[in-house]
Design a protein around this nucleic acid. Sequence first.
DNA 1: GTCTATAGAAAGATAGAC
DNA 2: GTCTATCTTTCTATAGAC
Lengths: 192, 192
Amino acid sequence: MPYPKDHAEKSRGKILASAYKFFVWKGFDATSIDEIMQDCQMTRGAFYWHFQSKTQLYREAIVHAALQSRLAGDKPQDVSEQAWLGELLDAYLDKDTSAKTEWPCPLAFFVSDVTHREPDVRHAYTKAFSAMNAHIHGHANRYAECREGTVLAVTAMLIGAVAITRTIDDDLLRGRLLDACRELAAGQLGLE
Amino acid sequence: MPYPKDHAEKSRGKILASAYKFFVWKGFDATSIDEIMQDCQMTRGAFYWHFQSKTQLYREAIVHAALQSRLAGDKPQDVSEQAWLGELLDAYLDKDTSAKTEWPCPLAFFVSDVTHREPDVRHAYTKAFSAMNAHIHGHANRYAECREGTVLAVTAMLIGAVAITRTIDDDLLRGRLLDACRELAAGQLGLE
DNA sequence: GTCTATAGAAAGATAGAC
DNA sequence: GTCTATCTTTCTATAGAC
């Protein structure tokens, strides 16, 4: 047999990861299927064997990225709930790691991009947003009373902060913004 | 003379307003110069007499929209600072008015769209973001001590909330999100 | 599974008439 | 100032070979 049995799965993952990289870097519209496939050392023909359309790729990439979030993963046993949530918060608002991780948060990076996409893409975004809130709420509730509204407001601030950070061109302002949001978030989540 | 002397200025303003409407509705990339000009009952030729490029149009539209913000305007004399800021906050987070006003906030509507644009567009965005913070800070400082960081965090939350509201497809969740952000913002700005 | 070739549509920008 | 005509590029998606 010419192809190993996990070959298709590997190629698919490669396309997904490469596509996400380009979407983060250039945005959905400015990214062409050609450049994604060139990056994967394949051609357009292979793409349409794995995916039905560019939109489907986008939706799947968003879902996949949301699942890669450390927030969706397990807390190490030797770390307290508060310390863990604090660590995730710091990582989320760190302007160096946030953009350099392989799967940056799609909620922040694509927020006003997904607005204009097909309903199923927006639905995937909505699910991911709900999941982020549920995860934070789950952690926070293990050490203190925490209302859903508090989490929603904090999440909106975090997503807004990261999205704005990527957009503005003033590095000092970026730093002050992220610091301020970290402080308010920590306060609201009882991490001080 | 075939054209009244303010004709050029009127046409320009018409293009700007129409373009903004399309950018809000479909996003920058999905909006073509053709459809903007059709909406203005003119053709592409006229566009390139008024503007150098689609990017320049975008930048000017963002600057213009930021100046249209009620936050940039004057407070009515018969309203207290706190009441005024509270009113602006409510309007900003009202999901009906926020999208129906003629010049919705570019900071929220285009945040992850501007990320991938030319440096001068991002610079215009940065200026507008700073201006929004300065305006809020200015108001808040007239009735209480208010740190810059507090305003930055609140602004990020407001922008995030409006951007997310536009993107998610769950109307109940939208409502809870906006309510929660309104409450936290009011608390942070001393409006209770 | 992946390739090449191509159909088919659209958009940004320019040139020159009026 | 605005129009029409056109150049040029780019992109999604499909068809069929291997």
